[in-house]
């Protein structure tokens, strides 16, 4: 079964140049039955990655561009009056797909965000008197553009917490960009071939759920989350070269949902690596993804010129692996 996972990864890599982090995030979300928040500039193959994943799984893909005038019904669906039948009929929204790309989620107002996040959590949508289950597997990949914050609606921490992971997407390397030129500038790209079925995804999820996590690793995960709440002993170098206490930059630490997310992600990574037991490397590799959007940083982070990821990396490094 892990051979099929390798096939899926290879199929995605055939279409998407570089961006291994995005591909791995998508696969981990699939295995962990969760959703991904991607932050990065436009044009980094986020849409292509989602579309390719859906195609490789014979699943359905939908993209929703979030705008300030979007309504909840534009996402979940609505009831329309059918004059010929003289009755109301339900039209399901674009959220009914296996892989949904919610592009620039912070451009829509809070009620639209809430509608999406509620559907993500409940995995069902209520339209009028009736509830509709969302398809399984169901993965939402939401993007945020960090460069352009005018007219945006920041996601509250409580809603961000519902994403299994947040991944920062960076620019490709010059070598990768050359490969992008070779692959996309000359001819039409080859469509991604289907390498697995949706049933395979459900089987992989069961396998991921059975991946063993040792007691030492469980304690390590709890320590990693706890340090975000009591980071007095962690020092971070500020722009002025002053050593700051990490706790002075944090208003509140990660929730217990972060510990669960760490476990889901570590299990998924172990399965991707072909193991049925997790290692400290798995936990450390996914720790920043699980914590990044669950920590409330205060204004000093900006005024001291420290990046959130540097604080998170310092906290992770302060906990010795078992």
């Amino acid at each position: 079964m892990s051979a099929s996972l390798a096939d899926l990864r290879a199929a995605l890599a055939l279409t998407i140049v570089g961006q291994e982090g995005v591909i791995e995030a998508l696969l981990l979300a699939l295995l962990g039955n969760g959703h991904v928040l991607l932050e990065g500039p436009p044009g980094l193959a986020k849409t292509l990655a989602c579309r390719s994943l859906a195609a490789a799984l014979e699943g359905e893909f939908k993209r929703i561009q979030f705008t300030p005038d979007l309504l909840p019904s534009d996402i979940v669906g609505t009831r329309v009056f059918d004059q010929r039948e003289s009755a109301f009929a339900t039209v399901l929204g674009p959220i009914f797909a296996n892989v949904v790309l919610a592009d620039e989620i912070n451009r829509a107002p809070a009620k639209v965000q809430s509608a999406l996040l509620e559907a993500m959590q409940e995995r069902q949508v209520t339209i009028g008197p009736q509830s509709y289950a969302l398809p399984d597997p169901f993965v939402v990949m939401a993007t945020m553009n960090p460069l352009d914050s005018e007219g945006t609606y920041a996601l509250p921490i409580a809603q961000m917490d519902r994403f299994l992971m947040k991944v920062n997407v960076g620019y490709p390397s010059p070598a990768e960009e050359l490969r992008i030129l070779d692959r996309f500038a000359v001819a039409d790209t080859q469509p991604v071939r289907s390498v697995a079925a949706l049933d395979d995804v459900r089987a992989w999820r069961e396998q991921a759920h059975a991946v063993h996590i040792d007691e030492k690793l469980k304690r390590y995960m709890v320590d990693l989350v706890t340090i975000t709440r009591r980071a007095d002993g962690v020092r971070v170098r500020a722009h002025s070269d002053e050593a700051l206490r990490a706790s002075d930059l944090i208003d509140y630490g990660a929730s217990p949902r972060a510990t669960l997310a760490l476990a889901f992600l570590a299990r998924g990574r172990a399965l991707l690596e072909g193991r049925d037991f997790a290692l400290p490397d798995d936990v450390r590799a996914v720790a920043a993804h699980a914590l990044r959007h669950r920590i409330g940083f205060n204004y000093r982070l900006v005024t001291e010129g420290v990046s959130a990821d540097r604080v998170i990396d310092a906290m992770i490094a302060s906990i010795p692996a078992p």
């Binding site: 063993h212 040792d214 030492k216 690793l217 049925d276 037991f277 290692l279 400290p280």
Partner: peptide, 11 residues
């Protein structure tokens, strides 16, 4: 050695 430190009991 990493495997023997972290694998499940049956293994």
């Amino acid at each position: 050695l990493e495997r023997s430190a972290f694998t499940y009991d049956d293994d």
